[in-house]
């Protein structure tokens, strides 16, 4: 395609937006409203996922070594566990460190623990974190079978319930967002189809005088792209503004400390990118399938 022709298509596509003012308004509104709803759910889902992740990350396995294990054995066991590809980190806590931590936790009542230094009853401990939190149980099982491992503990039962809950939340979120995206597509395609219906005469004449099908399609392509992108800009501005306000409120508020919202950056950029892409895609897709019907000879 010649540059001059490309310029003509872009100009023509942009001009058509103005010429079909009300139809453009209808299409852009349809895109805006659906993408706004989609964006709200996207942000919600991403944050729920984030909170679920924060909770999941706190899950760890405590591996208690038997009393006979000395420093060398502890290192061996640590190496063995680290060799497991599902394992992220292994931290060694000696019985002395363990006691220190315990004393700290007892605070004022630490005196109760006095005298234990000489005959420390605590075992050496390894703290294991899984790469994928849901693998915790299976790692624990494998570690338990190792030599010199007395016992493992990871909050059996509670952890499984936690993972079932977070998985359910994620699946519902995905289904919701996919469903919403499809609704948006059909809504927009329909609106755009109406704008093209109103212009079938133009297409008919273009074909009569010998315009190629692609020549006819290009301005509609540009138009769909512009409508979709403009339609995405409005919810992006609203969502970014709203989220900025919300993050400010929630993350600085002292009363809610057990979770934090995802930070503006990169979330707002990610959401903006997703919405622009979806908007542009459905705009183009909507106008292409609609124009196709009028190109058949």
């Amino acid at each position: 395609m010649k540059i001059r022709t490309l310029g003509r298509h872009v100009r023509e596509g942009a001009k058509n937006l103005g010429r079909n003012g009300w139809m453009t308004f209808a299409s852009v509104s349809a895109v805006s409203i659906t993408l706004l709803i989609l964006g709200v759910f996207l942000i919600l889902a991403l944050n729920v996922n984030h909170i679920a992740q924060t909770v999941e990350k706190q899950v760890e396995i405590r591996v208690f070594l038997d009393v006979l294990a000395d420093k060398t054995i502890a290192t061996q066991v640590q190496d063995q566990i680290e060799a497991n590809p599902k394992v992220d980190t292994v931290t060694f806590i000696s019985k002395e460190e363990g006691l220190e931590q315990l004393k700290k936790r007892f605070g004022q009542n630490a005196k109760l623990l006095e005298g234990l230094e000489d005959d420390n009853p605590l075992p050496d401990t390894l703290v294991v974190k899984a790469k994928v939190p849901s693998e915790t149980a299976s790692i624990a099982k494998e570690v338990k079978g190792l030599e010199h491992v007395e016992d493992v503990s990871y909050g059996e039962g509670t952890v499984e319930k936690l993972f079932t809950a977070t998985a359910a939340i994620r699946n519902v979120g995905i289904i919701f967002i996919v469903g919403l995206a499809f609704t948006a597509m059909f809504l927009i395609a329909n609106t755009i189809r109406l704008t093209i219906m109103a212009r079938r005469r133009e297409i008919e004449i273009m074909k009569l005088v010998g315009a190629t099908n692609w020549f006819i399609r290009w301005p509609f392509f540009v138009e769909g792209l512009l409508m979709g992108s403009i339609g995405a800009l409005i919810p992006i501005v609203i969502l970014t503004g709203g989220y900025y306000y919300l993050v400010d409120k929630v993350n600085t508020s002292m009363t809610v400390v057990f979770f934090s919202l995802l930070p503006m950056n990169p979330l707002s950029y990610q959401v903006a990118l997703i919405l622009i892409s979806i908007g542009a895609f459905i705009g183009i897709w909507g106008s292409m399938i609609s124009v196709r019907r009028f190109l058949r000879v």
Partner: peptide, 8 residues
């Protein structure tokens, strides 16, 4: 002019 434009 339209008829000339569309055939480039």
């Amino acid at each position: 002019a339209f008829a000339m434009e569309v055939i480039e």
